[in-house]
Amino acid sequence: MELSKAVNSSTTIKKEKKYSPLRELLKNWKKQKNALWASLFILLLITVAIIGPFIAPYDPYKPDYNAMLQGPGIDHIAGTDEYGRDIFSRLLFGARISLTVSFLSVFLGAIGGTILGLLSGYFGGWLDRLIMRSSDVMFAFPDILLAIAIVAILGPGLTNVVIAVSIFSIPSFARLVRSSTLEAKETVFVEAAKSMGASHFRIMFQHILPETLGSLIVFISMRIGTAILAASSLSFLGLGASPETPDWGAMLSLGRDYLGTSTHVVMMPGIAIFLTVLAFNIVGDGLRDVLDPKTKNE
């Protein structure tokens, strides 16, 4: 209608100030109060993951049999575990492990899923059926069960956790990208590119992929939370990091024997996992409001 057109068109360009998608994004991002805080927290977390080992007050691996299972105090701000290792230092080291594992697994899953989703949505036909039916099969298993199965086959260890979590991320990414691809495929500018003789590769990566990018970024930020949980669960079950590694999941696993007596041993890594997952989810929600055209209210 003319009404909305008139009002919308008026916001396109302001005089000579040049439009840039990035500036637009930052402007909208500042309006998302919660997500702004959450993203600051994630930034802090990333910093910790990088410089954590240099600022940690204690060696996270070194047992101290004089200070076993101490509660939070002046010497050890987050207390110590059953071997007298400083929990705070272990958390700082653990941030690096948790973030590396989750980022790596989600990015691998996103790349795999995006390629499969693009192919599936763009070409359709038997390829589409093959890819979608395979992911249906994978969807039939609960995520964590699938991850357990994969690690059980590959053997325990952090590398295998990354592989397991990325594999179970692939189908969700494939589905998401496929649906945006189906939509983008019908746009007139894709038709225009076809009429110019653009190759399938060019159409997929130059014209369709950018259209899916918004929802892809939103989904990645959401999946990072899930991946941290999954990796922690695997470590908790003893399938991930070895017990002496300062991984948050592994710390939880060790602490469970002292749940009744020294709650802080479980509480501290628990809180770390909780806050991190929450932050990523809030950021994901905020990104959705800013980026995802489907939920954008014009």
Binding site: E2, L3, A6, S9
Partner: peptide, 10 residues
Amino acid sequence: SGSGKSITSL
């Protein structure tokens, strides 16, 4: 478009 004719009717 943008002349305001529809807005007038509304």
